[in-house]
């Protein structure tokens, strides 16, 4: 087994390294890039990264505020229910009050009519547009994506050999890194000669092209924080990225907590089974 594994590793890595090295030399035209994003996102530090990561509740609350006051005017979050906001540290009453800020369409009532009522905790975040076609029509043909899973649905390819190291460093924050990079990535000047289509905005961090339809959505001082956190674009981006990670993976903390217990058990159990195995085979040459 050991020989097989080392053989596998050496050969595989050897071949891939050679090839990877050769490919790194590939030329890209600055003005007309063909691979996106033009710039890879920076790796930020997140409280929920690593084997013992947990969400920073204050940060999630700030992120929610950014989502509510900025993003939610265009981006829906259909899969997140108000009731789950209790996980952000809000009390039941606070969640009720928060839900009641929204108007929810319900019905039909006994007369067969649809009606509007105040939101309750079991409702989901309402969409800013009645349907996808309306969302596309109001946004130059491209419907703004839903935000429920955006932090898991966007990840910039890491490339070889980083994607192998990622297994050992447990890098799983590509989504928030990307969102943060995108939000702070406006205001760059496109390289000489690059043509930016009308109505789009250059952003070297955008995953699917050189520019995107969304203009810079947020800037310094736009959202008021009441916990004294800096009201800067960078902080807003961090907070909303963390919030969107929570929205996409609400059970992350439970997952890592359970994981630690499972790992401890399995390692101890493996040790025991190994001892038993050694005892059983003690007098048999093999």
């Amino acid at each position: 087994m050991k020989t097989i594994l080392t053989g596998l590793a050496t050969l595989g890595f050897g071949v891939m390294l050679t090839v990877g090295g050769a490919l790194a030399q590939e030329q890209h035209s600055e003005a007309e890039p063909t691979h996106f994003p033009i710039e890879k996102p920076h790796q930020e530090s997140w409280s929920f990264a690593g084997p013992f990561g947990t969400y920073d509740k204050g940060q999630l609350q700030r992120g929610l505020k950014v989502y509510k006051e900025v993003c939610s005017s265009c981006h829906s979050m259909k899969l997140v229910a108000f009731r789950s906001l209790e996980e952000l540290g809000y009390t039941e009453d606070q969640v009720k009050a928060l839900a009641a800020e929204y108007d929810i369409q319900d019905g039909p009532n006994a007369d067969g009519e649809m009606f509007t009522r105040k939101g309750i905790p079991t409702d989901y975040f309402p969409s800013p547009f009645p349907n996808d076609a309306a969302a596309a029509a109001s946004n130059g043909g491209a419907a703004p994506p839903d935000f429920s899973l955006i932090a898991k649905a966007r990840a910039v390819e890491r490339g070889f050999p980083t994607f192998i190291f990622d297994i050992f460093t447990q890098y799983a924050e590509a989504g928030p890194d990307y969102i943060h990079a995108l939000l702070t990535g406006y205001d760059h000047t496109p390289p000489e000669g690059m043509e930016i289509p009308e109505g789009t905005h250059y952003n070297p961090y955008f995953i699917a092209g050189k520019s995107l339809a969304m203009p810079k959505p947020i800037d310094d001082g736009q959202v008021t924080y009441d916990d004294g956190s800096p009201e800067t674009l960078d902080q807003y981006s961090r907070d909303v990225s963390a919030f969107l990670m929570w929205a996409a993976e609400p059970h992350l903390e439970a997952r890592k907590r359970t994981g630690f217990r499972v790992m401890v058990f399995l390692v101890l159990f493996a040790g025991l089974v190994y001892l038993v195995k050694r005892r059983v085979w003690a007098n048999v040459a093999h």
Binding site: F265, L266, L268, F269, L272, V273, L275, V276, R279
Partner: peptide
């Protein structure tokens, strides 16, 4: 050793 391993297996 056998009992401990067996118990751990059952718990798991």
């Amino acid at each position: 050793l056998y009992i401990a391993t067996g118990m751990a297996g059952v718990v798991g």
